[in-house]
């Protein structure tokens, strides 16, 4: 998978939040085989400096980081957060999130496109967290994005792919754009389904972090994503409504 000129072996991008412990996070990242971990920015206390320890842990993992603008509700807020992230993480990559609804965490696609245009013009390489809306996807590409990250379902819901038709349409319309399913994945089977639809990768967090055994689940997702991609590349058979015997009829004995 190639994202903004960076060739990646793993098609799994993993979030770093909600793990039972920092050690569990580190073990899950290693078990997943991911090369990209998402991170965020939050207020730092001068006394506790807890962010410094977290950053040290991530750096020791040797992965590429994808900073996000999680929690931003306007283009202005997201653009400022992105610039602050670039100052710290020294990467042009930004996972652009502009939230429009508090209950579903659905992206505000209008401010998303506005922020994407401003950030792309400023040299960022934007990974927009978007819906499965085809027209919005086209606007994001026009704004300069070269990767799209449509949601499977609301963040943290674990519901899988809510709109298979819309996602399939998106894939068909943009065959050459890296498409990563971001959010809503709950089980490895959801990831297999996304990959079998031809998506280039999957970004997930909660499905691993809140699993009973996050490290084992990270490994399970790694295998699921590989299997789904291999299945897509092998070109699955077309489904039929009626049965068709797999054993040849020719040569069958007449025993009635």
């Amino acid at each position: 998978m190639n994202l903004y000129g960076i060739e990646l072996t793993s098609r799994l991008l993993l979030g770093s939040a909600r793990y039972p412990s920092p050690a569990m996070l580190a073990d899950a990242v290693r078990a997943s085989g991911t090369e990209v971990v998402t991170v965020s920015l939050r207020r730092e206390s001068g006394g506790q400096r807890s962010g410094q320890g977290f950053w040290s842990l991530i750096r020791d993992l040797g992965v590429r980081v994808l900073p996000n603008t999680a929690g931003c509700h306007s283009a202005k807020e997201a653009v400022t957060t992105a610039r602050m992230a670039r100052d710290i993480f020294q990467t042009p990559w930004i996972k652009l999130e502009v939230i429009g609804d508090a209950d579903t965490l659905q992206p505000d696609v209008f401010d998303l496109v506005e922020a994407a245009a401003e950030l792309c013009a400023d040299g960022f390489e934007v990974f927009p967290y978007t819906t499965d809306d085809l027209v919005v996807a086209d606007r994001l590409l026009q704004a300069g994005c070269r990767v799209l990250m449509p949601w499977g379902a609301p963040i943290g819901s674990g519901r899988g792919l809510n709109n298979r038709f819309g996602l399939r349409t998106l894939r068909a319309h943009f065959p050459d754009v890296p498409l990563i399913i971001d959010a809503g994945i709950g089980r490895p089977s959801h990831a297999v389904e996304a990959m079998e639809l031809g998506f280039d990768g999957v970004l997930l967090n909660t499905a691993v972090a809140l699993a009973g055994d996050p490290v084992a689940m990270a490994a399970a997702f790694a295998r699921a994503i590989e299997a789904g991609r291999a299945g897509f590349e092998a070109q699955p058979m077309a489904p039929r409504d009626l049965a068709e015997p797999s054993t040849p009829i020719t040569g069958k004995a007449w025993l009635a």
Partner: peptide, 10 residues
Amino acid sequence: LEILAPMQGG
């Protein structure tokens, strides 16, 4: 003044 640091994120 806002002072931000790396933090866990999804």
